[in-house]
């Protein structure tokens, strides 16, 4: 078979991520839509000075003796881990995370220490800027942010009697996403709200890498229900084919 996007391991999947890369990461809150194994492999791989683009970068691992911020799925890690290891120099996000005594997201700690730059984007604008990168849209006018601090330094235009802000695509080098099932063409389906940003990010970066629970034979996924067409996916790394925690 000539087309096979399945790689042998999570380590192989992230091997070419370079220092300074811009990385899109799927996931939302504690939903099981975060590519935990790809993130752990990236920690092992060691690329630094990364820009992490995600709705919430994440809470990382709780410090010894403290409890987790909230209940998470088994074998879970989020982008907070990459912030804890010092591999991220900039985070672009809509929800930096809670900050309260005894429970501070690593993002806030690194920010206060002057080791991290944080850029906030309204959630819908974040999604649309990623979608624009995938869709080849050069720029777009959007009402969100007009008349607020988010229009500062941006071109504005009144359209249909309403103020709009000009926003540009958010281009990235790698998209790390999580799906439920894949075939060797890279077609993907998801589960529930674990879908979230993942299908938006698929195809929005130069290289899209999907971590999936299950690989199925070609033809098993119903063409009517495939959410992400394989054209947007470059690599598929399968959970059961890899050593746990690799």
């Amino acid at each position: 078979m000539s087309i096979n996007k399945v790689v042998k391991s999570f380590d192989e999947a992230v091997a070419d991520i370079f220092d300074g890369a811009i990385i899109l990461m799927g996931g939302f809150g504690p939903a099981n839509g975060t590519p935990s194994n790809l993130l752990r492999a990236l920690v092992k791989q060691g690329a630094r000075n990364l820009t992490l683009v995600a709705n919430t970068p994440g809470y990382g691992r709780p410090a010894p003796g403290t409890r987790a911020f909230r209940k998470t799925p088994p074998d879970y890690d989020d982008g907070g881990l990459l912030i804890q290891t010092g591999q991220v120099s900039k985070a672009i996000c809509a929800f930096p995370g809670m900050s309260r005594p005894g429970m501070t997201a690593p993002l806030h700690e690194k920010l206060d220490a002057g080791e991290l730059e944080v850029e906030m984007i309204p959630q819908g604008t974040l999604a649309e800027r990623i979608r624009a990168a995938k869709a080849g849209v050069a720029a777009f006018f959007i009402p969100t942010g007009a008349g607020t601090i988010f229009e500062e330094g941006k071109e504005t235009r009144v359209i249909d009697g309403r103020n709009n802000v000009l926003e540009y695509p958010l281009k990235a080098d790698f998209a790390l996403i999580r799906a439920y099932k894949a075939d060797r063409y890279g077609n993907l389906v998801y589960q529930g709200t674990s879908r979230n940003f993942n299908p938006v990010m698929a195809g929005a970066a130069k290289v899209t890498i999907a971590e999936v629970d299950e690989l199925v034979p070609l033809g098993e996924l119903d063409p009517e229900v495939i959410v992400t067409p394989g054209i947007y996916v470059d690599r598929v790394a399968v959970r059961q084919n890899s050593v746990k925690g690799a």
């Binding site: 939302f28 809150g29 504690p30 939903a31 099981n32 839509g33 709705n55 909230r70 998470t72 799925p73 959630q123 819908g124 999604a127 649309e128 990623i130 979608r131 998801y190 589960q191 529930g192 709200t193 674990s194 879908r195 979230n196 940003f197 993942n198 299908p199 938006v200 959410v227």
Partner: peptide
């Protein structure tokens, strides 16, 4: 179910007629 959380990150339950979509569609 970690595949069913609402926008505040808390668990929700399924209901007949429920549907899922991605963030770009949601916004």
């Amino acid at each position: 179910d970690f595949h069913l959380v609402n926008a505040t990150g808390t668990f929700a339950t399924p209901k007949p007629g429920m549907c899922f979509f991605d963030h770009a569609d949601s916004f």
